[in-house]
Write a protein that binds this DNA or RNA. Structure first.
Lengths: 335, 335
DNA sequence: AATGATGATGGAATCGTTTCCATGAGCACT
DNA sequence: AGTGCTCATGGAAACGATTCCATCATCATT
């Protein structure tokens, strides 16, 4: 059943046709030194035979498979989809294939995935990490070339060293949140809630910091990765605290849940509750009312991360990309 | 700079520790025959050394790299994101890595991507194809194991043979459209438009067929892959044909564009225009009014496609998954 | 003219696995 | 006891590239 087909043309065939040794062919094709005449003969032979070097042979020899791995919590989330798109688009210009894995924000799955990557001798990886500092530290010790995107791993104590070396491409949540909260307080809001998902500890920390004296710990709630959990968290918060007048959703799935929960509970936006959502997705504008958001350059995050991991230059420092508050109609003055 | 690190443990190390030959180790680990005692010794040694077979060596030997490739037009489109998710989730259970490429609905990029895959000796690929029958035919002739998802390639003449062999996992657009159109005509609509994107010829064909006598060729418009183009197409149609009373958007990006264009042009949905959108995305419910949609099991499409390409069983036939009309509030009787 | 330096070149080793084949042991049957 | 069979087993040959190293030619310098 399988194609017995004609053997694929190897470097040996090219060498034979060109009347040179395989070493010479390899050198010519990878830009080494060779006489002009030889170079031409080799190139001729290669095109004549339509020779494509086998990545397999190369990889084995060099003890590393090409390409980049990309680990995201959920590819279905518009933010991560755009991040992937950025990575993909940068990787294409380097002609590097991208292997994608979904962690589901679960440390165990993440470790599994990384294990599989190691087995494949993948040595470059872009990850939106999920917590386990131990695992990541051991991965970089194992020689893995890691770049974090969107968030970095919380480095508790001993791993700090290894992990602080890891470059990351982040969004400037801190300033985004500060702007958003200033905007809300400017509208008179004092009781401001935060809808988070596990793995958003950095964002929650930034929220706490930006809230300062206004912070009410009871108003920050966590959801698990699923849509249902997000809905439950939002609905729970809205019911529990009738004094809530504004809420910030830590991501687009949380924002979606907030809109849904509000509608279900007859909480009117923005009349009864002001809402700001992290991440500007296309539907934010279609929503009624159109949602005020903190826009993040998701695609750029991916692109830059890919650049960091693909460019062989010197170790670059972590970079933080700006966010922007886009005011639409989901916030109103406190009544 | 690079980690000189301790050499990774190879099959040879295991063989040595177990006091057997490498061939035996290989056999034991891949389920070949061996005496109980030897098996135990080998397994012991393997766990003691924490041995992980190198995918590189295996791949070179077997002349094929493991894993699956997945080609989608746009990973940013919620439908394809869910499709990817389905593929990923099936592939994980087989412990196979997935390499994703974005074609942008462009035949040239698609061909490029496939070329790269060939170079990597990837021999299994799931694709949402973009047109060029010639290319796909030659790919399957080259021994590539192809499964089409969401749509198949239009097989013109000579390639028909090779391409009809290729299994595909599709959604039952035909019946979805028939239901939708019956619903609309039931509401009294006669002038029904269709918003398509290039690459949706199958869906357009189904629309034409289902419309029968009602078909007005001037009411089906095509957009290119971008959001802007989708908007332009929708706005253009709405302005050009004031007699239009209902429209079906061929995908969620088209639907989004339709909602936006309608709002911009003060066309009220559903009062002035009824709208049905292909693909049920989370925001369809958040939209105002909530959109009536033709739901597609995107994730299942991906999952099934992955099953087809990963399961080594006998060649399966093309399968078509059911769609469902979900009535919300974006359609009203013709006034 | 002898020596050294430079540069192009090809043979062979190497990467880690799977798989072909030969070997030898154990056993049953004549 | 000899023959034939079935098994477990290990050595060695692939797979296709890169790269070390030795070889040789060419040319400049003393």
């Amino acid at each position: 059943m399988s194609t017995p087909g004609p053997r694929r043309t190897t470097i040996k065939d090219v060498a034979e046709l060109a009347g040179v040794g395989v070493a010479t062919v390899s050198r010519v094709l990878s830009g080494g030194s060779a006489s002009a005449e030889t170079r031409e003969r080799v190139l001729d032979a290669a095109t004549k035979l339509d020779y494509r070097p086998s990545a397999l042979g190369r990889n084995l020899r060099q003890q590393r498979s090409g390409g980049v791995a990309l680990l995201v919590p959920d590819i279905t989330d518009g933010f991560y989809a755009r991040l992937c798109d950025g990575v993909l688009s940068c990787a294409r210009s380097y002609r590097e294939p991208v292997t994608i894995g979904v962690t589901g924000d679960d440390a165990e799955q993440e470790a599994d995935l990384v294990g599989g990557l190691l087995e494949q001798s993948m040595d470059r990886i872009i990850a939106v990490p999920t917590g386990d500092g131990e695992m990541w530290a051991s991965a970089v010790r194992a020689g893995l070339n890691v770049v974090f995107a969107d968030r970095r791993v919380w480095s508790p104590g001993q791993h700090a060293r290894a992990l602080d070396e890891v470059p990351a491409v982040l969004t400037d949540d801190r300033s985004g949140l500060r702007t958003a909260i200033e905007y809300l307080t400017g509208l008179g809001h004092r009781k401001i809630g935060f809808l988070a998902r596990q793995g958003m500890s950095h964002r929650v920390a930034a929220f706490r910091e930006a809230m300062g004296d206004l912070l009410d710990e009871d108003l920050v709630v966590f959801a698990r990765a699923s849509r249902d959990s997000a809905y439950a968290a939002a609905a729970g918060l809205f019911q529990r605290r009738a004094d809530l007048t504004a809420v910030i959703a830590g991501g687009n799935m949380l924002g979606e849940a907030a809109v849904l929960a509000a509608r279900e509970l007859y909480v009117r936006i923005p009349r009864d509750l002001s809402l700001i959502m992290f991440d500007d997705v296309p539907w934010a504008e279609l929503c009624s009312p159109p949602l005020t958001v903190i826009a993040q350059p998701a695609s750029d995050v991916g692109y830059r991360a890919a650049e960091l991991v693909l460019r062989h230059g010197r170790r670059p420092r972590t970079v933080s990309l700006p966010t922007e508050l886009i005011v639409r109609s989901s916030c109103a003055p406190r009544r």
